[in-house]
Design a protein around this nucleic acid. Structure first.
Lengths: 224, 224
DNA sequence: CTGGTGCTTAACAATTTGATAATATATAAC
DNA sequence: GTTATATATTATCAAATTGTTAAGCACCAG
């Protein structure tokens, strides 16, 4: 379940660090630790965690500062950040949320609470995350206009991209030629019969795999 | 969590309105509703929502029109706008972005999807307001109007700066040409086709690196 | 008034894309 | 197995898109 997600914990109290580390590691997460703000920043850069837990009260950059610095870097825009606060003071909590933290937990921390919060944050972020279609070894990101095959970026021209995105939007479904024409070329543009074939061919060529199946007399479908 | 953010929903179907309203209110948002375009405009002025959800197909000004009108007023420049579209047609989606919408959701809408999209948009917008963006070796300071590349200060003219800041606000995302025009030149100014290219060229020249990628037929994107 | 800067445009070059035609191959029907 | 039909493949060309350069205008500081 935890699928080797990486977590960085920063707290200046060694015993708390240990308890949290133990409990999260038990869940299957890969955990690194830091004892102050500066170290947290350093390790974050190297370790590239998916989630970071920051104690607010730490030497050399406190938790809020670290959070701020991280959030200003594009690398950490998507990283989940949880703040640990000793005081359940409203001010601090609000400040934390303004800083861009995703959640906060007030000390003392019950390990069970932390673990379940971490799990649920991962679940939530996954849903929220992004507008990408992923099917098998292929990932299609509409926003970035980018297709990845086994992690490798493949450059598709506009029509090719749209065609693939359309087919992949519903894996398994057979798209009639007319359906494809309407969706991608619109109803007022008229193109010859072979045009679709040619684009399909180019996609197959570039993806270098047979993920697009021809259903003769009907249309095409995408499958992982 | 939702910190009394205000949301306005406009749709002519009463039941959809009710479902969405219920789900968003449950999350802690303050929700108002409108059943047509004219009413949406009216309520927007009074209620001053932080986020507006517009069905595209509505009587008395459709969603696209309402979006256009709102965006032309300075009051609503910062307001988040989501379009609801019945058709998953690319054309409509692209038109929506060109009109200045921040996102679109295709019907039928799963309440959970909407809620998480709303949450993530609020989070994203919060980040975008950041004064300092840093991506890779580049640092952009909105307040000082200053760009640093490897610590070295690079002087960009205003339009150049704004263009770079826009692209860098979401590394990886492809900005359509019209999206760029709306964001930087506004909806009422009309400039020639090559203007964007020329500015892009100057930025590339001054930064002396290929961090801005052309996606032919679509737009430009910034990458670290 | 003058020189400099920023913004836009026009004109042209360079590039990429998408569509088509022509031909080959595959598939289903008979 | 042959024929008719649908799709695959390939090369080619026109159209669309972007890159580049230089020039013109507006504006501001000195």
């Amino acid at each position: 379940m935890a699928a080797d997600k990486k977590i960085l914990i920063a707290d200046d109290e060694a015993d708390i660090l240990e308890i949290l580390q133990f409990n999260l590691a038990k869940e299957g997460y890969k955990v690194e630790t830091a004892m102050n703000g500066a170290e947290a920043l350093e390790k974050a850069e190297k370790f590239l965690p998916d989630l970071i837990i920051l104690d607010i009260m730490m030497p050399y950059y406190n938790g809020l500062e670290v959070c701020n610095i991280l959030r200003s870097k594009s690398t950490f825009q998507q990283t989940i950040i949880i703040l640990l606060t000793a005081i359940s003071n409203d001010q601090t909590q609000i400040q934390g949320l303004e800083t861009g933290a995703d959640d906060y937990i007030s000390k003392p921390v019950a390990p069970k609470v932390l673990v379940s919060k971490v799990n649920s944050l991962f679940r939530r972020m996954q849903k929220d995350a992004k507008d990408v279609i992923s099917a098998g070894t292929i990932e299609i990101d509409r926003e970035k206009y980018e297709v990845k095959h086994n992690g490798e970026i493949i450059t598709l021209a506009r029509k090719e991209f749209e065609l693939l995105a359309l087919l992949a939007s519903r894996p398994g479904k057979v798209f009639l030629r007319n359906e494809i024409l309407n969706q991608i070329w619109g109803t007022d543009v008229i193109v010859g019969d072979r045009t679709i074939d040619v684009h399909i061919r180019k996609i197959r060529q570039k993806l270098n795999m047979d993920s697009i199946t021809t259903v003769k007399g009907v249309g095409y479908k995408f499958e992982a």
